[in-house]
Design a binder for these strands. Structure first.
Length: 584
RNA sequence: GCCCUUGUAGUUCAAUGGAUAGAACAGUUCCGUCCUAAGGAAUAGAUGUAGGUUCGAUUCCUACCAAGGGCACCA
């Protein structure tokens, strides 16, 4: 409907002799906040009036050229009324009325029957994007370190963006980049050896072994200020790279394997299936090679024995790519990584990288360097960042050990869910499944409900509450609607439509449009916001209408409406990476 | 010191330059013979400060105030 209205407005403008030659943002068709203003509103009169009244055949600041035959309009309202008159000459069949209001809005009231018919007929056209190939890199946990709630955030956002892009028809390659070499590994191995321990001291399940590694890392990090220890750690780091020490190799190989096995179990639980794993150890050599290749070509320069990129020349800051010891830093590895991405997937149209926003300035430097090394990679790479999860205790740090692991957070919330469904008469294994889906849904929703980029405040009192603006509220509304459908006998034929439709029908009609916007902006929050409004509308509807009722001729329509609601919710929740339990 | 980001109800978040700034939680008041009350209805409450651009600014620009992040061999 939106597109058709936009087209009819364009036609009306043409008829009035108003033509936009280089169309950019001519006008918008919006959903008014207040439904009294109509179902759609258009700001064309206001948007065009300025340019139009000022000059004919003029060029505006942004280069848009406007041509008008008639510039006699004295106000936005007058222009709006002229557009309205044109629209009424050939009124769209589903439009009941067109009106002009306020400063010059052109409002469209859509026939209730049009909404109702859309529910019954179902099908609204999906806007399919082109079949691009897009890589999304996210989560990026480091072996030997804890998989913490920051990784959970990256995963929730990355998975949702992947699904959004995928729903637009693109071929998405989910990628995960894991730091299996570097100082954090050296610290861990150094700590193990310092304590006189070996891999044999790692006991129990993979989870417990990984926990042990994490503790060793924390221990090793306590020597950050100790010069003697730092030298020893640097020596271990070098041996890891050279693979020259059998004892170190043994700890390294086992530790890496345990970590990766453990990460796999988490990915599975969160609903992510990576197609491509990259490792720092595999891209480091290439990174070094490229940095050295461009050394002296006024991109990288030597400074105090290290190889650096002088960011100051570009309004940024200097960063070290290869240390004075000759080892690659994160920066050099990242050069190697991004080259590898485009080498492996030569048809890549877009490469999205999701990280915490503390890396924003760092990524600016990296991308600036890439703009000088490889324009193709530079133009196709997009960095999206998220904030951190905050708790009352302050910022967490995996070095200090005051971090909250993803597993801890999930299990804490899962405990609460389990209490809540304790008196439900359901089999134990189903309860377990429900608790997992609801706990993870609650966390993911808390992350995705707000704009990506800001911090997420995790307050155990409110974010764990399942009322109102929460994942479980969405899941519950869907499950309940599904339960209602279970009471209905199949798909009864609809032979009566309501005279008046509600907000529920109107909201349902917007789903494709909302998805499109979320996809274009890489903004899952639009989906989250939409689903909240939709679930609220259904709950309101449910409270006043009996849906399944043999004696009511409108019942078949209500069943179709409920079905549409369930489909839309399920699809939307999938885009957020949230599962819908069968019962809850 | 320099650079970046963010300041919206008591709290946590919305709002592609548009109309009366929208939700949720907490508060107050209601709704249990009826498809899952993890529900529904009602009510009160907000754009950090000062300027500027604009027909119109939470949104763009400038200054100030406040918070967070980053700035050489960590990732």
């Amino acid at each position: 409907m939106k597109q058709e209205i936009a087209k009819s407005v364009e036609k009306a403008l043409d008829n009035l002799g108003i033509t936009q030659i280089t169309p950019k943002k001519g006008f918008n068709i919006d959903y008014p906040d207040n439904l009294e203003h109509g179902d759609f509103s258009c700001n064309a009169a206001m948007a065009y009036f300025k340019v139009f009244s000022q000059a004919v055949n003029s060029k505006t600041n942004d280069g848009t050229v406007w041509v008008g035959k008639n510039s006699n309009f004295k106000s936005t309202v007058e222009l709006a009324n002229s557009i309205k008159a044109e629209l009424e000459k050939d009124l769209l069949p589903f439009v009941e009325s067109v009106s002009v209001a306020g400063p010059g809005f052109i409002n469209f009231k859509v026939k209730d029957a049009a909404f109702a018919e859309m529910i019954v007929k179902g099908e609204q056209k999906e806007v399919k994007g082109s079949s691009k190939q897009v890589m999304v890199e996210y989560t990026d946990p480091n072996p030997f370190k804890v998989f913490h709630i920051g990784h959970l955030m990256s995963n929730a956002i990355g998975e949702s963006i992947s699904r959004l892009v995928e729903s637009g028809g693109a071929d998405v390659i989910r990628a995960c980049y894991q730091g299996d070499v570097g100082l954090h590994v050296a610290k861990t191995i150094w700590a193990i050896q310092k304590k006189g321990m070996t891999v044999a001291d790692a006991k129990g399940s993979v989870t417990e072994k990984v926990k042990w590694l994490g503790e060793m890392y924390v221990h090793g990090s306590q020597f950050d200020e100790d010069e003697a220890a730092k030298k020893e750690i640097a020596a271990v780091n070098k041996k890891i790279f050279e693979k020259s020490d059998p004892a170190i190799n043994e700890i390294y190989e086992n530790g890496r394997k345990w970590s990766l096995e453990y990460f796999d179990t988490i990915y599975k639980r969160l609903g992510t299936e990576f197609k491509q794993f990259f490792f720092e150890s595999e891209v480091a050599d290439d990174g070094v090679k490229v940095v050295r290749e461009f050394l002296g070509k006024s991109i990288f320069t030597e400074s105090e024995g290290a190889i650096v990129f002088k960011g100051e020349d570009h309004g940024l800051h200097t960063r070290v790519f290869i240390t004075s010891q000759g080892l690659p830093t994160y920066e050099a590895k990242e050069i190697g990584l991004n080259i590898e991405k485009f080498r492996k997937y030569s048809k890549l149209d877009e490469s999205i990288i999701i990280t915490a926003n503390e890396q924003n300035d760092y990524f600016k430097v990296l991308l600036k360097a890439f703009s000088l090394i490889d324009q193709n990679i530079f133009t196709k790479t997009k960095h999206i960042s998220h904030g951190i999860m905050r708790f009352a205790a302050g910022k967490m740090s995996s070095r200090k050990g005051n971090i909250i692991s993803a597993e801890e957070l999930i299990s804490d919330i899962k405990t609460l869910v389990t209490e809540k469904i304790a008196d439900r008469e359901l089999p134990a294994d189903e309860k377990e499944e429900i608790a997992d889906a609801v706990a993870i849904g609650a966390i993911k929703y808390t992350i995705l409900r707000q704009a990506t980029g800001g911090d997420v405040i995790f307050d155990s009192a409110s974010s764990i509450s399942f009322e109102g603006d929460s994942g479980p509220y969405l899941q519950y509304a869907t499950v309940r609607a599904n339960a209602v459908l279970g009471k209905a006998a199949g798909n009864p034929k609809v032979d009566a439509l309501p005279e008046q439709v509600t907000m529920l029908e109107k909201l349902l009609s917007r789903s494709a449009d909302i998805k499109e916007r979320a996809r274009m902006e890489y903004a899952p929050q639009h989906i989250a916001q939409y689903l909240m409004a939709l679930a609220g509308a259904f709950n309101g509807y449910y409270a006043v209408h009996q849906i399944v009722d043999d004696k009511d001729s409108l019942s078949p329509y209500r069943i179709a409406l409920t079905k549409k609601f369930v489909e839309t919710m399920t699809d939307g929740l999938w885009l957020l990476g949230i599962k819908v339990p069968k019962r809850m």
